[in-house]
């Protein structure tokens, strides 16, 4: 079933930043509940840019605890700070999602063992120190490296969420179809196949009518094998699109109340 990774608990947003500064869990809990009601399967947790590297460690653990006290959902621990990542994993209940590794060897060699140790799933971006690949083929080559390394560390492909990277359609238009083609090919890399994810909102950065672009791309991506997305769970039209695409792809058995049921999983 399609997994929504709710993006809202992020220190980039003012209310979450305030929650962190004041040590007041209210807003974090509210967003956990709200996103769960909207159909989120994972809650992305990001401390945001304000705190120092040292402070992030404690903040991440606090955010994860606050979110999981409010709802019975797993978290996607979203940070480039490895100490904060591990702090989040330590307090997490259930199977967490590490967000994220890339195909840089040094990163894979730290984060894959961490995923194995904490029995977490892991998001891995199809890019390396050279940047974002241009073509679908280059993305898939990196996806294969991610898959081979994950396998080497004993991580099952079903716990590996490969992100082929989505770029804004207004400035990197040629990447749109390449990412879609990469999604299609990633699902063919192994059996069982790796899972896939994208940071959906990237497709519409600084473009007008972002919701329309987001939901159109989501439907297109689900058609070629997208299993999950970091996205705005509060955008009802977007979640309706995910529910409908899931029905049309025969991933969920149809019923007249499918839109409502999609949010109740």
């Amino acid at each position: 079933m399609f997994e929504i990774i709710g993006e809202r608990i992020n220190g980039m947003f003012l209310d979450i930043r305030e929650a962190i500064v004041n040590k007041d869990p209210k807003n974090v809990r509210n967003w956990a509940v709200k996103q769960a009601e909207c159909g989120a399967y994972w809650l992305d947790i990001n401390t945001g840019p304000v705190a120092s590297k040292e402070e992030q460690v404690e903040i991440m653990a606090w955010l994860v605890k606050c979110a999981q006290e409010a709802v019975d959902l797993p978290c996607a621990i979203d940070t480039t700070n490895w100490a904060a990542m591990e702090a989040g994993l330590k307090v997490h209940k259930g199977k967490a999602l590490i967000n994220s590794a890339t195909a840089e060897q040094a990163k894979m060699d730290v984060l894959f063992p961490m995923a194995a140790k904490y029995e977490a799933s892991i998001v891995a971006l199809a890019m390396n120190e050279k940047g974002v690949p241009k073509s679908a083929d280059d993305r898939c080559a990196l996806a294969m490296e991610l898959l081979a390394n994950a396998d080497g560390y004993g991580i099952s492909p079903v716990d590996l969420y490969i992100d082929p990277l989505v770029l804004p359609v207004n400035v990197a238009q040629e990447h749109g179809p390449e990412s879609l083609e990469a999604l299609r090919q990633i699902k063919l890399l192994s059996n069982p196949s790796p899972k896939t994810t994208i940071g959906l909102s990237n497709i519409s950065q600084k473009a007008p009518n972002r919701p329309l672009i987001n939901r159109t791309y989501l439907a297109m991506a689900m058609c070629v094998g997208l299993d999950s997305a970091i996205m705005d769970a509060e955008d009802a039209d977007l979640v309706d699109t995910a529910a409908t695409a899931s029905i049309i792809m025969n991933q969920t058995i149809y019923c007249d109340s499918y839109i409502k049921i999609f949010r109740q999983r």
């Binding site: 149809y254 007249d256 409502k260």
Partner: peptide
């Protein structure tokens, strides 16, 4: 489909 809907 009708079965699922009736359950709901």
């Amino acid at each position: 489909n009708l079965c699922k809907q009736l359950n709901i």
